[in-house]
Design a protein around this nucleic acid. Sequence first.
DNA 1: CCTTACCTTGAAACCGGTTTCAAGATATCG
DNA 2: CGATATCTTGAAACCGGTTTCAAGGTAAGG
Lengths: 336, 336
Amino acid sequence: MNKVTIDDIAKVAGVSKSTVSRVLHGKVAVHPDKKNAVLTATRRLGFKPNIVAQSLASGRSMTIGVLTQNMGSPFYDAIAQGVIAGLASSNYSPIFADGQWQIPKELSALQSLVGRRVDGLVLIGGGISSQQIDDTCDGLPIVIVARTFAESHYRCISMDNIAGGYAATRHLLDRGHRKIAIVRGLPTHADAIERYQGYVRALEELGMVPDPRLVVESDFSPESGITAVNELVKRGERFSAIFAANDLTAFGARLALDQHRLRVPDDVSLIGFDDQLESAYITPPLTTYRQPAREMGQYAADAILKLLQGEEFSSLQVHGELVIRHSVRDLSTASV
Amino acid sequence: MNKVTIDDIAKVAGVSKSTVSRVLHGKVAVHPDKKNAVLTATRRLGFKPNIVAQSLASGRSMTIGVLTQNMGSPFYDAIAQGVIAGLASSNYSPIFADGQWQIPKELSALQSLVGRRVDGLVLIGGGISSQQIDDTCDGLPIVIVARTFAESHYRCISMDNIAGGYAATRHLLDRGHRKIAIVRGLPTHADAIERYQGYVRALEELGMVPDPRLVVESDFSPESGITAVNELVKRGERFSAIFAANDLTAFGARLALDQHRLRVPDDVSLIGFDDQLESAYITPPLTTYRQPAREMGQYAADAILKLLQGEEFSSLQVHGELVIRHSVRDLSTASV
DNA sequence: CCTTACCTTGAAACCGGTTTCAAGATATCG
DNA sequence: CGATATCTTGAAACCGGTTTCAAGGTAAGG
């Protein structure tokens, strides 16, 4: 273990530990001779500061707590990676906790993070109330990614899911689709609800009314995409396109369609949401609404860093975009 | 912020801080009355111990450093999730660092972890030498996942990649394939090398010699799977099956085959490696050699926890298995 | 050349716990 | 009932840094 302390250096360099600390920090002027002596000793002894001691003394732990909705979901993982990347150039290290889609776990994970005296928090998704957040971490700088609070004073990095749902649906509409099924996602999840709202809005804009028989719920997993399509087929519904809650669901839906001998996009068009890595490589490459997850994570890192430096930072809405690949058929030209 | 300290409790409970510490730890007997007084005060004041101070005083940080080869690779991410899950029931929290496939970054990330005075380390994959590891973290308990060292004294959780490569190739062979192309993976990466060795062994066992024209390199990305197939096709090679370095590469290969109007598995069979989530949902569902990544992560967590308690733990080899789905065609019956 | 302002520097307090040590209290035992 | 062993307990040292404070030294101004 590295047992060299600041006192050892002080002794070797012939100065006080205060001076060593000052040299290492570089903020206060120190006589060049002593400075050199300290630096030399530091190098010779291979001194590495004890971050724990530093934290206790300075009150800052140089650690950012990152609480994620779920590790293992491509979207949230991508955000987490963005946070890591954004923090990499700073002196702060991220420390992770996982909410596992469950509010109680999420809360206790948050408490553990706060108990570790993190200097700041990045919350990725999640479902705990702003009340609970406030109670648990009063005063701590917080940035929230991929979630918004209507009332709150938090800084959020979010994407407009209503706009996303609208754009995806609109794309289908523009290509002549009228019977558009939607696999909604978790009925309690804000993102899913908003995307659905976008879907409804796009339909209504054309004077259509959403057909309840064409909406199915899911839990964002591929498995639930399969179930959804099976359900739709079993019910005997007719549809020319499916809007899936996210790409993972779309993968499942795509497989189920295949099993029903429904070709994509010839028989049924398919559109996803997220644009995860694999989406560009399935057959056919999936048209989807891209969320800039990694960037969102980086923005969050930048934001928390700013907050930590006392600079201000206000909520930010990032823009998604439709990524058009080959899973949607253009019915309008086909019918010409 | 939580400003309640152990001194506040001592004052309220009318005892010394030593006694408070003892009560909170529970190891030493304390008079029931005082114990109750302390517990009551703790609850009433909402005391949460300052983990940083605890760490400094006790010399243990209750933190496990996790260094991953790369965040964003499904396989390594799955291991990381396993580690998180395995640590969840303990009092230790994981703190992450990312090597980003680059040895210098890996080394500096490791140093930063050690500087934080983690109590133990879990290394996921990676390429730094055992020499470098020893120099950086002498004495610290270490568990290494998804990598083995021939010489070393480390505890490793690994899978036999040679056996995996052999099993995958053998599966193809058993189904009558003889022209088996392989997309090898990173030429410097141990896993890739070993899988290739397994491939060679399977071939040689049947008296065949590996055809260098059928081996292409990749970097484990889907993009490189596309490139590999394009390369193979451009060269005009004939092959009835492809063994891809990992599933991601297989995805790319599958798409490229489609673009060349080569059907899977009718024209070309495809087998992957890893069995990541999405593999079961592409079309056709991918036959692949499954690495129990998440379990490996959990084993690693268990191992480091044991080591921390002074118990012993020796290296462990987990077993992979072939997951047969629908991307491999049986040529032997077809020809009957 | 003397006074005042500013620098540089070391001693000491401090961060919030854990742990050692010794004293006082209690229990055990002959 | 006295002596010794065992428990319980508080004071103080300690972990390894940061930060305050005041002293001594130097530079600038009159």
